[in-house]
Design a protein around this nucleic acid. Structure first.
Lengths: 151, 151
DNA sequence: GCGCAAACGCAACCTTGTTGCATTTAAATG
DNA sequence: CATTTAAATGCAACAAGGTTGCGTTTGCGC
């Protein structure tokens, strides 16, 4: 039963939103659900498409922008920019699985590959600097693109 | 004498453009000059502002986009996207000075700081992967922003 | 249920970036 | 040097992404 599952997810999202200290609205719950269900960060347009169900109309474009910003502001979502300059949003916590290993970005196809290696310890920072996150990104061509070029 | 210096720079840019196998036009020379003179990657608007001199009018907005793209296409410039989703362009070669050390990006003010430490050796890659570049980026708050928050 | 601040929907607007087309120009050729 | 041609430019219009202002609705504390 899909509705039951959806309802459970909505409850979880609603609780998160309530705990964040902001109003629980249908729009926020549905957007946060969509972000949680997605495996990759979603653009504004992608979120809009996933909410545009037949039963109930999608939220307003501007409201969606504000919902996304509000989720970011209260720490439930993260905002990043992709290679085309478009903002992408992901549910907070989803990135933690990507925080502690190394990424390989293919400059040819744009794909991102997660390597098993752990990032090395960060060097000493100047006085007053506070470290939050370490990103160790390698760039090059992946196996698929390397072989395709050779053909 | 500034004009003499500018002329020398223009000659160098013109030679680079000629060597790249594309037409040498006034617009391309001036844009490449601007990119070389800049210490940071410039946005389209910033390039436009630097070319908008009193003596001769700035190039057309669209033409500037095409000039920047053509410089990227022939390998004389690099295109990247900043945290606001805006494309920034830098002269090719200028990035090499940033390739071999660690960067600290302040998530508060957006500033980038170059640390003295060298990046650690990359881990072993899966078969077929080719490595071109290593980026070891630390994220957090810089000294200035940390102290300002504390006040 | 009542009241109020927060959230929403709508319209208009701004910035960044792109496309089509007529005109100009770099530079190769004779 | 004159001719020629493909590339580059300028202009207008457009498209996508994102923001602002404002009146209306709604979550939620009382």
């Amino acid at each position: 039963m899909a509705p039951a599952l959806a309802s459970v997810e909505a409850e979880a999202s609603a609780d998160l939103i309530r705990a964040a200290g902001v109003k629980v609205t249908r729009g926020r719950v549905r957007v946060l659900d969509a972000l949680h269900a997605a495996r990759q960060p979603l653009s504004h347009a992608e979120v809009e498409a996933r909410l545009g169900d037949a039963s109930d109309p999608a939220v307003d474009r501007v409201t969606l922008y504000r919902i996304l910003d509000s989720l970011v502001a209260c720490g439930l979502a993260l905002k990043a920019v992709d290679t085309r300059g478009v903002f992408r949003f992901s549910a907070a916590g989803a990135q933690r699985q990507h925080a502690n290993h190394v990424h390989f970005r293919c400059t040819d196809c744009g794909g991102v590959f997660c390597l098993k290696a752990e990032p090395p310890p960060p060097p000493r920072l100047p006085r007053g600097f506070r470290l939050n996150e370490v990103a160790f990104d390698l760039r090059g061509t992946c196996a698929g693109c390397s072989s395709r070029v050779g053909v």
